[in-house]
Write a protein that binds this DNA or RNA. Structure first.
Lengths: 208, 208
DNA sequence: ACAGAATATGAGCGATCATTCGCTTTCGAT
DNA sequence: ATCGAAAGCGAATGATCGCTCATATTCTGT
């Protein structure tokens, strides 16, 4: 197993000990990002918080960027796990139900480790490897556009592309801001109110 | 004039030459932010692009943060100059007209040096002096809330606070994304279409 | 023409950062 | 018990950064 030259290989973990190291590094990175922000997340500090040495970090991650990218991926996967099942249901429901469920899903997505979500959204530079954040958003857009196409006859929209843009942007911004900038709004009661309002906003727009 | 000890004073520019230096520094900072991003904007590089020495930079700005803060202020003032007159008109107009004008204003605001706006919105760390960005947004929110209060009877809204949040967030996100992430949409024709859609979205929501 | 204030200079300081590499320790297979 | 591979270590490197200061140049009032 692992036939690569041992001097270079920045490679995968085969023993359990090393898997624990990788895990500790990813977790430490996330914790530092949340508690101290992106620019305090130096590789030396990450290794220190993870309880390993910098050298070990570079055994498994070719760069700091790669490590942050893994943190992003893990966060997106956690969101997807919370959401994938519900997302399938949406596609076969009528507009009003679908939008309401979509808003609820978006809200729940933003409540998975909100502080990490905020740092990723606001502080991570979108260069090189770290553009995955943009890609993730484009996926949502495509899914929504597909839904609108298959329910075209129930809607009063001229330009599907434009309508998708309006809806996705609004829902994303509302849920993002509600969770990350107005966390007082998080009482379950007010949260239901927000779902009502966002649903009314979007369905009203789609059904004329 | 200027009685401070000459060893410390990090002070104002009284001669024309120094005013030009300050201007060159601010402009160079903006240009670097746009063309190379926030983390390439080192003080040495800023001074180099401005055609002055680092020392001169620190004669007029106590820190890099202060310099960036001035760039932010200047950008916000440029936006306000483009917008202030129109904003006054909005307050005395009926809902539909008002919203349409507000959307158009927001759009125009985002088209004042859009690339700089994007960098300021997405790359500048919101710490210390640089929180002005948040304050600016809170102002918009307050203005809108005031408008809704004075037109309460024309509206079908329960919670004014919540409605303001929904409207401001949506308009801001739509105009921001349209200008900064979908610049293909900028053809004047599609731009009018976006104003139509955003207006329909928000007025539909407010008037039930 | 001269003095002192204002302005400009840029080498360099100390801190911090991402990354490397020679070395040691632990593991798994025999 | 042994040995090679895997995992771990951390001082050291070189780059870059924000910022200072001793010095030089230019301006302004007289």
């Amino acid at each position: 197993m692992a036939r690569r030259p041992p001097t270079k290989p920045r490679k995968f973990a085969s023993q359990e000990r090393s898997r624990a190291t990788v895990d500790a590094l990813v977790e430490a990175t996330a914790r530092i990002l949340v508690k101290e922000g992106f620019d305090k997340a130096s590789t030396n500090r990450i290794a220190e918080v993870a309880g390993v040495s910098v050298g070990s970090l570079y055994q498994y991650f070719p760069s700091k960027e790669a490590l942050v990218a893994v943190v992003i991926e893990r966060h997106q996967q956690e969101i997807m796990q919370t959401v994938r099942g519900e997302l399938a249901e949406v596609l076969v429901q009528p507009v009003e139900k679908a939008i309401r469920k979509l808003v609820a899903i978006a809200l729940r997505a933003h409540r998975v480790d909100p502080k990490l979500h905020r740092v990723l959204a606001e502080q991570i530079p979108r260069v090189g490897e770290l553009e995955k954040l943009e890609t993730f958003n484009r996926d949502n857009y495509t899914i929504f556009r597909t839904y609108l196409e298959s329910h075209r006859d129930e809607l009063r929209v001229g330009d599907l592309e434009l309508a998708s843009f309006v809806c996705v942007t609004s829902i994303e911004a509302l849920t993002h801001n509600a969770v990350l900038h107005h966390s007082k709004m998080i009482s379950d009661e007010r949260l239901e109110a927000l779902i009502d309002e966002a649903t009314r906003l979007v369905t009203g727009y789609l059904k004329g």
